[in-house]
Design a protein around this nucleic acid. Structure first.
Lengths: 206, 206
DNA sequence: GTCTATATGTCGATAGAC
DNA sequence: GTCTATCGACATATAGAC
């Protein structure tokens, strides 16, 4: 009985993962507003009714996708934290790289500017908020450390650095560079990271 | 007869300006998808039918708003260009400041990530494309000049600098900083400009 | 697969200018 | 009195919810 339940649970997890992955891709491709529940059903390969069995609304679908991305980021950050002798600023750089790579791979659900229904739904989702808080706290530690060492500008408030890093996940320039076809993914990421940390200014302004 | 036509035309222009201003505010507030044509009618103080008399679709309304912002930017840039003895990099900084101020004032129509209907509509709008081209060309000149003087990093391709500057118009960090209420508009703009040009890195990494 | 709500786009009625 | 422009109710399609 216990074994059977476990299998059922595993199947449920696989199914749920298929849904969340589908939502993730669709959010990355078209954004929340343009994504329809029919799209999700088609992409996940199941009937619309099955979606509403597990998720109570379109907003809940999106929230699950965004929560999963935060969990993946956390997992990545914990791996990074375990490594020895890596400067905090390099750990921050790594997170920014990771999120831009996800963005380029079409796996980063982009949250629209200020959609009312999705936004209020996210603000009511404790799991999402907890994960966001976990990510922010870990990044915050690294930011303080990097500022202490002089690797990050000390005049910029830590929260502002944090938001700038989080914003890499929806950097519009990455998408433009991608669509021109002039640059490969690696170059795009490196150029944006370089601009983010080093700025646009040249030698004469330093 | 000529006088009468002129008055009529003036009235039409005033009306059209009211419409475009309303669209502008609504795009800034809720974005294209969430904005309804009924919203526009209410905000502009006229009936929906009157909107469709002058604009053939919701997309055309949005395109008109975006075109007008580009025209305002151009006008600002031409004023800047007329000033003597201003370094190109400072003119670029001024444009970035201007667009962020517009963003903070709720007057910057934000184009959604990649909405299919609006995007294809914009790409078919010659007026919009021409204005965008005008802005890009002028900025491109300044970028080349600033790079030549060493005021901008020469390893970053000019187009990438251009896109980074255009992206200030939809900088999500500005909105977050605004909503916290911790900073006034001027501080927000200066911090973001400073990060954009100077980067996040501190003295130890220079 | 069905239902309901809502959003875009249309059209006939109407009011006001000359 | 005619003509033009505005209004707002209506048709139609589509998307969320179950």
């Amino acid at each position: 009985m216990e074994q059977r339940l476990s299998v059922k649970e595993q199947l449920a997890r696989v199914r749920e993962d298929a849904i969340v992955s589908a939502v993730n891709r669709l959010l990355a491709r078209k954004g929340f507003e343009a994504m329809t529940v029919d799209d999700v059903a088609a992409e996940a390969g199941m009937a619309k009714g099955s979606l509403y069995k597990r998720f109570e609304s379109k907003e809940a679908l999106a929230a699950a996708a965004m929560t999963r991305v935060l969990e993946q980021a956390l997992s990545r950050m914990e791996q990074q934290a375990a490594r020895q002798g890596v400067a905090a600023v390099d750990q921050l750089r790594d997170v920014a790289r990771w999120s831009m790579q996800a963005l380029l791979a079409g796996e980063m659900p982009i949250l629209p500017a200020q959609n009312s229904t999705l936004r209020s739904s996210l603000l009511a989702d404790k799991t999402y908020l907890n994960r966001l808080n976990d990510v922010s706290e870990k990044l915050g530690e690294w930011i303080i450390e990097a500022q202490g060492r002089g690797d990050l500008d000390q005049r910029t408030p830590p929260e502002v650095v944090l938001w700038a890093l989080l914003a890499t996940a929806c950097d519009p320039v990455v998408a433009v560079m991608k669509t021109t076809g002039q640059y490969n993914d690696e170059d795009i990421v490196e150029m944006r990271i370089s601009t983010l940390f080093g700025g646009l200014s040249g030698a004469a302004s330093r």
